[in-house]
């Protein structure tokens, strides 16, 4: 299963319906809801944390948290 942690530069994904309620509510409040899009904008120099656009919210989160958000990758970009 792909997660936000699997995204590459510029790639986008759509958050899947989640039944497990392991995600912190804070993340939901910032727009991490099923059906919303996530785009990977930057990866920190040491590969962690990552910087995403979560349906309009620009956030930096650690990989450990990103791994909890399952999604469907929708946009293949030219890997850079």
């Amino acid at each position: 299963m792909a997660t936000v942690a699997d995204l590459r530069y510029g790639q986008k994904g759509i958050i899947k319906d989640f039944t497990e309620h392991i995600l912190p509510i804070k993340l939901l409040e910032l727009g991490c809801l099923p059906g919303n899009s996530v785009e990977l904008l930057q990866i920190a120099p040491l590969n962690d944390p990552i910087y995403i656009n979560l349906s309009g919210s620009h956030l930096a989160i650690r990989r450990s948290l990103a791994e909890l958000i399952e999604l469907e990758i929708i946009e293949e970009t030219q890997a850079k």
């Binding site: 912190p24 804070k26 944390p49 620009h58 956030l59 930096a60 989160i61 650690r62 948290l65």
Partner: peptide
């Protein structure tokens, strides 16, 4: 609290 930082404009 978890690590989540908003990157403002």
């Amino acid at each position: 609290s978890i690590f989540m930082v908003e990157m403002p404009t």
